[in-house]
């Protein structure tokens, strides 16, 4: 039971981590909590559903297409909704983010309907739902292995991008000292666009994985997942990428154990409980830095 829950927790935690890095990267660069990020994740799931289920595109390709579309969607949202407010007080952008989130939820209702939709079985390779490993009373499905593998690959790519590439380093530079980045001629707008694209693509992958894992997608699915991933980002230290990865895993495992040992009714509450504990005990997060209030 313990081992099984640990594996379930890691699977889910990896997905939270994928969403959480999107929150944390955008926050790092422009200090905006992008409340519409959960909706990108939802769009990721629905786009893959349309590509694979309706249009008959092979599943893995549908996943990649969904990533690309969501990267575009993320850039578009920034361009239309946030960029005009870059110099406005932070609250204005935050409220706009909530507005974008509601807009996208309702757009999804118009496009795909308000009902829960099962992710069509035929659209997903059949073996993904089979058991891959069985040992000591633990079962692991191919889907879980696939989710692990994808999460790891995405995290590794992200790590490579932000530590090795010019744009990735510039993202960190903007997050660490915006004035200096400006004085070095780093084009902030382009960096922000790249940040939105990257974070949105990661969120889209998470959406597809969860859609297949729970076999249900719906227009408000981004809300809960978004809040939880945001909690994970806060847990790790908002603005800190490794922190968001760690926060996602801790949250996933916490939820799995909470559901197993307390009651599955508590599983949603655990994210909030963790967030409250972090804010009270360690407001700068697990890996974040202690610092004063920034204006």
């Amino acid at each position: 039971m313990f081992l099984q829950q640990l594996i379930n927790g890691l699977t889910l935690g990896g997905v939270y981590a994928l969403i959480a890095v999107g929150y944390t990267m955008v926050y790092g660069v422009i200090q905006l909590i992008n409340f519409a990020h959960g909706e990108i994740y939802m769009f990721g799931a629905f786009l893959a559903y349309t590509f694979a289920g309706t249009l008959g595109v092979p599943f893995y390709l549908a996943m990649v297409l969904s990533m690309l579309c969501c990267a575009g969607l993320g850039m578009l949202i920034d361009l239309v909704a946030y960029r005009p407010l870059r110099l406005a007080p932070r609250l204005a952008a935050l409220i706009t983010a909530i507005g974008v989130s509601l807009f996208l939820q309702n757009l999804a209702r118009i496009l795909w309907g308000a009902q829960n939709k099962p992710f069509p079985h035929a659209a997903v390779p059949a073996y993904l739902h089979e058991t891959a490993l069985r040992f000591a009373g633990v079962t692991v499905s191919y889907l879980q292995l696939f989710m692990f593998a994808v999460t790891l690959a995405m995290m590794a790519s992200l790590h490579f991008i932000i530590t090795r590439t010019r744009y990735g380093k510039a993202m960190r530079a903007c997050a660490q000292d915006r004035v200096a980045a400006y004085l070095m001629g780093i084009d902030m707008d382009r960096i922000v666009t790249a940040t939105f694209a990257l974070g949105s693509a990661m969120g889209a992958v998470a959406g597809v994985l969860v859609g297949v894992y729970f076999n249900v997608i719906f227009p408000t699915m981004g809300y809960t997942a978004g809040v939880k991933a945001f909690a994970a980002a806060v847990l790790g230290g908002i603005g800190n990428v490794p922190g968001a990865m760690l926060g996602g895993l801790v949250l996933g495992i916490g939820e799995a154990f909470g559901a197993a040992y307390l009651s599955s009714l508590y599983s949603h509450g655990i994210a909030y409980a963790i967030m409250i504990l972090v804010i009270v005990l360690r407001p700068y997060g697990l890996l974040g830095k202690r610092e004063g209030v920034k204006s």
Partner: peptide
């Protein structure tokens, strides 16, 4: 106004 959490080499590269 350095980039405090980046290495000396990375700071120079950003220049």
């Amino acid at each position: 106004h350095l980039f405090p959490d980046m290495s000396v080499a990375e700071n120079l590269e950003m220049g």
